[in-house]
């Protein structure tokens, strides 16, 4: 191999990877636009929507609750330990509240939804594709986009903000329990400090992030499921790619939303 061939080949690989990534972004954007266009056009499959509400929202509550309570507790311990270095340990209630509501609550719930819901949606739809159930839907005059994607994406968009709200409260409760039971904070003043410090924009930003993350997590699950390859390997690949893409997009969207809402 000539000396020139190695860098040229590396450059070609980089170019191919970049083009593939851009093509994927384009395909996902088109899929998102199609989904939105189908949301506003009948028919609407109510039963599938109610099932998706249960799957995405209700059944995710335990994992969201457990994630939030442990994170809130750990956050309180970290802030207390860090705060002690410059005698600021009293700010634990305020920092736990703002940390959970503005950042950790939405991001952790988003990532847990990506792990639990995106993977499940991608695997389910990919299996349906492999077993020709998607083709069967089409031959039965049912648009798979309307029947499978729209109910799930709508359920994600509507329920994840609620999960984020619940996660925020449980996270703050985790901090409260650790602070009052282990660190010696007064219960009444902890609650008062938390409530006094939090502002409406903090809560609204949390819910907006939840809605966006819910949309991303469910949309990506549906997209990779619908575009899965053949066989067990195809289903596995679709699931893996869906979780990885949804997680990255959620973190990227979090940065963009935080910049827009709090950047100034």
């Amino acid at each position: 191999m000539s000396l020139l061939a190695l860098p040229t080949s590396a450059l070609a690989s980089l170019g191919r990877a970049t083009f593939n990534a851009l093509a994927s972004i384009g395909r996902i954007a088109i899929y998102a636009a199609l989904t939105l266009s189908h949301i506003v056009r009948p028919p609407f499959y109510r039963r599938e929507f109610l099932t998706a509400l249960m799957q995405v929202g209700w059944l995710s509550l335990p994992v969201v609750g457990l994630t939030a309570i442990f994170t809130g507790g750990a956050l309180a311990l970290q802030i207390y330990a860090g705060g002690q270095r410059f005698s600021a340990e009293a700010v634990v209630p305020q920092i736990v509240a703002i940390g959970m509501v503005r950042e950790l609550g939405p991001v952790l719930v988003g990532l847990m939804i990506a792990a639990r819901v995106t993977s499940s949606i991608a695997a389910e739809i990919a299996t349906m594709k492999v077993t020709e159930q998607i083709d069967a839907l089409t031959t039965l005059s049912t648009n798979p986009m309307k029947y499978l994607t729209v109910p799930r994406v709508l359920a994600g968009f509507l329920t994840v903000p609620l999960l984020v709200g619940v996660g925020d409260i449980i996270g703050i409760m985790g901090g409260f329990l650790v602070s009052t039971e282990q660190l010696g904070f007064n219960r009444a003043s902890y609650i008062k400090n938390t409530l006094d410090f939090l502002q409406t924009p903090d809560v609204v930003s949390s819910l907006i992030k939840g809605a966006v993350f819910g949309f991303i997590a469910t949309l990506i699950g549906c997209y990779y499921g619908m575009n899965s390859g053949r066989g067990a390997q195809g289903v596995g690949g679709a699931t893996k790619n869906a979780v990885a893409t949804a997680s990255i997009l959620i973190l990227a969207a979090n940065f963009v939303l935080t910049s827009v809402m709090f950047g100034s």
């Binding site: 099932t51 349906m128 077993t131 020709e132 159930q133 083709d135 069967a136 031959t139 005059s141």
Partner: peptide
């Protein structure tokens, strides 16, 4: 067009749920 057709798929393609 599709309303005029019925189809039996190789693996059945029944909806599990």
């Amino acid at each position: 067009f599709l309303a005029r057709f019925g189809m039996l798929f190789q693996g059945g393609a029944l909806f599990d749920s």
